[in-house]
């Protein structure tokens, strides 16, 4: 009787472990929709140009750090916009990273969309201009259910790219 009791407890524990190690199942994202992931890392232009230092200013610098020009480290924030099917979906001003704001600004956003054809328009401003954008791109896509479409930004590729 005692061993039967032990057997029952072991069996119950096994069922508990076996069941909850795989169940109940979970759906993280709807399986009938696709996803666009906008993610990039890009440094905005430097805030202000380089300046020629005067002889007095150079003299004040430590001997091993004397340079003729002073260039600011701080970068400009990025303005990013994304439209899907000609409707604005996303707009954000991304601050540069780093304690001195001299690092790249980073974007990482996910958007759930119904499957089917879509027109994506993207714009990015990384300079101190007040109007317009430095980079623009557009893609005609046919999104599949559960598709993960990544939109990246690469200066060397000329702007926005699909991955």
């Amino acid at each position: 009787m005692r061993y039967l009791g032990q057997l029952a407890i072991y069996a119950a524990f096994a069922v508990l472990i076996g069941y909850f190690s795989v169940a109940p199942s979970y759906t993280h994202a709807p399986t009938d929709r696709g996803e666009i992931k906008l993610s990039f890392s890009h440094g905005g232009q430097k805030r202000g140009g380089c300046r020629q230092l005067s002889a007095e200013e150079i003299a004040k610098l430590p001997p091993n750090m004397r340079v003729a020009r002073s260039c600011p480290r701080e970068r400009l924030p990025l303005l990013v916009e994304m439209d899907v099917d000609e409707k604005p979906l996303y707009q954000e001003t991304l601050k540069p990273s780093g304690l001195s704001s001299d690092g790249a600004a980073r974007a990482y956003r996910r958007f759930s969309l119904p499957p089917g054809p879509h027109r994506i328009a993207l714009r990015l401003r990384d300079s101190d201009r007040s109007q317009g954008f430095d980079y623009e791109g557009g893609f005609d896509i046919v999104l599949q259910p559960r598709q993960n479409l990544v939109v990246d930004f690469r200066t060397e590729a000329g702007g926005f790219v699909l991955r």
């Binding site: 472990i17 795989v22 169940a23 199942s25 979970y26 759906t27 559960r146 598709q147 993960n148």
Partner: peptide, 23 residues
């Protein structure tokens, strides 16, 4: 498959119960 969004998941709830809370 990073080109796809994971579908139905059989979570190990002993370790991964935290993850649905992210959603």
């Amino acid at each position: 498959d990073l080109a796809k969004v994971p579908g139905l998941l059989h979570l190990d709830w002993f370790y991964l119960a935290w993850y649905p809370l992210f959603d």
